[in-house]
Simulated scan of single mutants.
Amino acid sequence: MKKKDIFLALFVVMVWGANFTVIKLGLNGVPSMLLASLRYLITLFPAIFIVKKPNIEWKYIILYGLTVGVGQFSCLFYAMEIGMPASIASIVLQIQAFISPILAFVIIKEKLKYKQILGFIIAGMGLFIIGSYSSSNDITTIPLNAFLLTLCAPFFWALSNIIARIASDKAEAKGDKLNMLSLVVWASIIPPLPLLGIALSLNTPETLINTIANLKAISIFSALYLGYVATLFGYGIWNGLIVKYPIGKIAPLSLLVPITGLLTARIVLSEQLSKMQWIGVSIILIGLIITNVNFGVFKKIIKKYRIINKAESD
């Protein structure tokens, strides 16, 4: 990779890692579903007038918007509103890396690798530790309903990945290539109304109107960051790198997202985890590494090293 592209990839990772802290800051004074709805309205305008509609059927755009927008972010935002720490949320959301291959195996019959199953089992152990040791005696308390809701978010994220994959395959069958940024922008039409409907079921209309009329600067910053920086800029750069380089070189960099998420939450929000929670987080990261890293590269390096040594000894 070129140095400029490496810098851009690392910058996107930092942006996405800080995303969880920004959500937490935005929820300080804004109901979760209203903040999620604002995020998509900002993502939608004015991008929809600039970015061309993807050449796929509307059903895929609608399904993608419902899963990633309504499913994933309603669960994540509300979980964080009722007590899920930004630091642990940044870790738990990454288990989509395990759920996506499993759903791909079930839905589109994609081959499931042994390392993906192993990584999923290891990550499950880490999640169990975090959930078990999040009692009132720990530094960071996690309500059970917040923890369970956060677990639902990566499932919807994984489901949206499958929908995007099917849509991409359909586009390729027609001789086209699916532009993921275009899909993200046009799918942003779907979430705002359902999210506002959920917001009205959780809050009174007066509360929502009063919140919008008295938005704090930090809430406005949060909504702008989530819409323009994390979504449009982040996905735009990331998808460009995915097209430019082999996925195997780019995808593992996303493993740094939880690291930046933990550090940002620690610095900005002063979130502190118990020793057992840190152990759980570490175990999940090990599972992520096992699932995403191509260990075949290391085998090739070792084999090459042995050949060189043998040639020198001869």
Rank of each mutant, 00 (worst) to 15 (best):
L103C: 11
I102D: 02
S201Y: 14
L253F: 07
S254F: 05
K24D: 02
L178E: 07
L183F: 01
S282M: 06
G236P: 11
G83D: 10
A213T: 15
K174M: 15
L195Q: 09
Q94G: 02
M80D: 09
G234A: 07
S188K: 14
W16V: 01
F147M: 12
S188M: 15
N55W: 15
I117R: 13
G234N: 08
L151W: 07
F98R: 00
Q272N: 09
T67A: 13
A158C: 15
F73W: 05
E57F: 13
G175H: 07
V92P: 06
I95G: 00
G126T: 05
D314G: 12
I189P: 00
T260N: 04
W157H: 13
W58A: 12
V229Y: 02
A9D: 02
Q272V: 12
I61P: 06
V30A: 03
G248L: 15
F233L: 11
G175W: 06
Y64L: 01
L183I: 01
N292P: 08
L263K: 04
I209H: 15
E172G: 07
P194F: 11
G69F: 09
I117T: 12
N161P: 08
Y245L: 02
V184D: 05
L208W: 11
W58T: 13
V68M: 13
K304H: 15
F128G: 08
Y305W: 06
T21L: 05
L178T: 14
K52F: 01
Q96S: 14
L195M: 11
S282C: 11
N19K: 07
L159Y: 13
I237Q: 07
V51Y: 08
S270T: 08
T204A: 13
E312A: 12
I88Q: 10
L269R: 00
T211R: 00
A104E: 09
I95L: 04
G296T: 10
I308S: 05
T291A: 02
I129H: 06
N214R: 15
P143N: 12
N294D: 14
Q116Y: 08
L25W: 04
K275Q: 14
T67Y: 07
I82T: 05
P194H: 13
K2F: 07
I286P: 03
G280A: 08
L285I: 14
F45M: 11
I62M: 09
L255F: 06
T141D: 14
D176H: 09
R39I: 08
L285K: 14
A146L: 14
M125F: 15
A123N: 00
